[in-house]
Design a protein around this nucleic acid. Structure first.
Lengths: 171, 171
DNA sequence: GAGAAACCTGAGCGAACGCTCCAGAATCTG
DNA sequence: CAGATTCTGGAGCGTTCGCTCAGGTTTCTC
């Protein structure tokens, strides 16, 4: 089940992933509103009808893509055990490919209005909360401050201001 | 010039404002992508062609509306002179009509990708920076922390978590 | 009142949208 | 090799989009 030797399915899954990647690229660069059946098909190099073969609707493709990018961020946060590592992660997010981070915020904004995406929002929240608990086990009253700062710095990264690592250690 | 006695123009400006209000309502509730010539016309109670009479395009209407909401936030920040006032403002933004705050973030996300909206982004940044300078005149090294926290708390407000006023004073 | 200026709108065009359908190509199974 | 399964993609339906335009109404000026 996890490994399919079937060449038919293998090629199918490769195309499915190509569609997800193309979706993230488009959303990051031009916004979630610019994601259309035809645009994502062109970006992925497949005929438009293939989009609706692998996903039952364009909206489902969008949700699937944004869920995978949320996975990535939550996993990354879960691996953080020290303040220094947190600084590294934030620095990496500021510096590396911005369009992915932008896509993450498109997801958050989308989730505000769509109850079916609320779990994704909670996953991000919970991951951040858990990280704060790990980094500040003895100072529960400072955790909300840490959470707010991380969110603020992520936002600043998206908006273009590079976060200064020195600033972070002041907590 | 500031006051037009001409009844023709007065009615026109009233409708223009109605369109801006309707736009903010729609963007806040259903996202910038849901703003169409026909939907905003229905929301404002005018015929669709009126939209393109007052604004040269639907996009220009969107930009005009988001600019006015940015005006409001920048002005509000400019009036903040003490930490207590800042706490009040943040509390107000958490509590009062969320859709306006959501619209502000739609603007920010839009501005990331559109060079012509970059000035709006800078206005928000500058206003926040100036406020930090006013509140922490003697501690320049703490200002980025304050800025990050404010941004983080605003984001949390949009995402649904009410900000605890007690948290803020810890700076 | 008459005429000019400003404001307003319904009809409709071309383009793009999401999505359905189905015939054919590729691949695995017996 | 035959048959079942999976994948592929072009045609096109009905809908909605932004926008144009020609003509009509309201308001001001004289």
């Amino acid at each position: 089940m996890p490994e399919h030797a079937d060449g038919r399915r293998r090629k199918g899954e490769r195309r499915r992933r190509a569609l997800l990647d193309a979706t993230l690229r488009l959303v990051g660069e031009h916004g979630a509103a610019a994601l259309t059946q035809r645009s994502v098909a062109a970006e992925a190099g497949v005929p438009p009808s293939a989009v609706l073969y692998y996903f039952s609707s364009v909206d489902e493709l969008l949700v699937a893509a944004l869920t995978t990018v949320n996975d990535r961020y939550v996993d990354r946060l879960a691996g953080v055990g020290t303040v220094a590592e947190l600084v590294d992660v934030l620095d990496e997010w500021s510096r590396s490919d911005r369009s992915l981070t932008v896509a993450e915020y498109e997801l958050l904004l989308l989730a505000v209005r769509r109850p079916d995406l609320a779990p994704q929002l909670r996953r991000w929240d919970d991951a951040l909360e858990a990280t704060a608990r790990r980094l500040l086990p003895a100072a529960p009253e400072r955790r909300p401050l840490l959470v707010a700062c991380v969110n603020g710095l992520c936002l600043a990264a998206v908006l273009g201001s590079p976060a200064d690592p020195a600033v972070l250690r002041r907590i």
